[in-house]
């Protein structure tokens, strides 16, 4: 990268001569180094999964969650700096609550994703703040006309928001995305997607580089009454067991 350095990478308020804002790109790098995050939007719901590296043997299992709820039926999975993720989720919670208080109904996922994107974007405009080092997957299941429409959005540090059937973030995003492309998402149920997501996370996990990890997984499905919930422990255990078995079978 010829333009690196040259004095244009110290502030997000200055473009480089070839039209780039380096600070924002560096924020994206913080996201790219994160544990793999996965989102699958399927026939009747959405599944979020995250490969969470175990930072210490003394860490409490299940603590330091990276997938949080913004509203009763909106889930957010964060990749990048944990504290930045938390800030974004807190903002999202406020947006959802304000909306519900004023309009009397839940905030549509698309509107929320756009508001989060606007919020994150603000951090790229002022010299006094640092760009947000977090990408978030926003999952929801909007009710419109008696039907539920699963939704999945990606909000990036540069303020871009995109809508997906499935996507992946973090270290193994490339291989995870090509695995997702093999799935028939539009006919898959959320229950099946839980297993598929577990399998992909185990598959793309780089045993040689990373130590142990914890699979954190949530879903929005008919089984949860379309609320955003953690995948129940027994279901998660089953999905993990199947994922491990499948990978062993592949290795042989």
């Amino acid at each position: 990268m010829s333009s690196v350095g040259a004095g244009y990478d110290l502030s997000s308020t200055t473009f480089s001569p070839d039209g780039r804002v380096f600070q924002v790109e560096y924020a994206q790098k913080a996201v790219d180094n994160s544990g793999t995050v996965l989102g699958l939007r399927v026939r009747d719901g959405v599944v979020l999964a995250i490969e969470k590296p175990v930072i210490s043997k003394l860490a409490v299992p299940g603590a330091n969650r990276r997938i949080l709820s913004a509203d009763r039926s909106v889930g957010m999975a964060g990749a990048g700096l944990a504290a930045d993720c938390r800030m974004v989720v807190n903002r999202a919670r406020g947006e959802c609550q304000n909306y519900k208080h004023f309009y009397g109904s839940a905030m549509p996922t698309e509107v929320l994703a756009e508001r989060i994107a606007s919020y994150v974007h603000l951090f790229t405009l002022y010299w006094s703040v640092r760009p947000c080092g977090a990408s978030t997957l926003v999952a929801g299941c909007d009710q419109s006309g008696g039907e539920r429409t699963p939704q999945l959005y990606l909000v990036e540090p540069n303020g871009v928001v995109q809508r997906f059937y499935g996507t992946a973030l973090g270290k193994a995003r490339q291989s995870a995305k090509s695995e997702i492309e093999k799935l028939d998402l539009s006919s898959m149920s959320a229950k099946e997607a839980v297993k598929a997501a577990a399998k992909i996370i185990y598959q793309v996990h780089d045993e040689s580089k990373d130590k142990q990890f914890e699979l954190e997984m949530t879903w929005i499905a008919p089984e949860t009454d379309y609320e955003h919930r953690r995948v129940p422990a027994d279901m998660l255990a089953e999905a993990e067991a199947e994922a491990k078995a499948a990978i062993e079978a592949m290795d042989e």
């Binding site: 709820s69 913004a70 509203d71 919670r93 609550q97 519900k100 953690r230």
Partner: peptide, 15 residues
């Protein structure tokens, strides 16, 4: 009632 719903929703969300 709306205040109470919000309070309760917050508990549910924090999980």
């Amino acid at each position: 009632s709306k205040l109470l719903t919000e309070l309760n929703d917050n508990d549910v969300i924090r999980d």
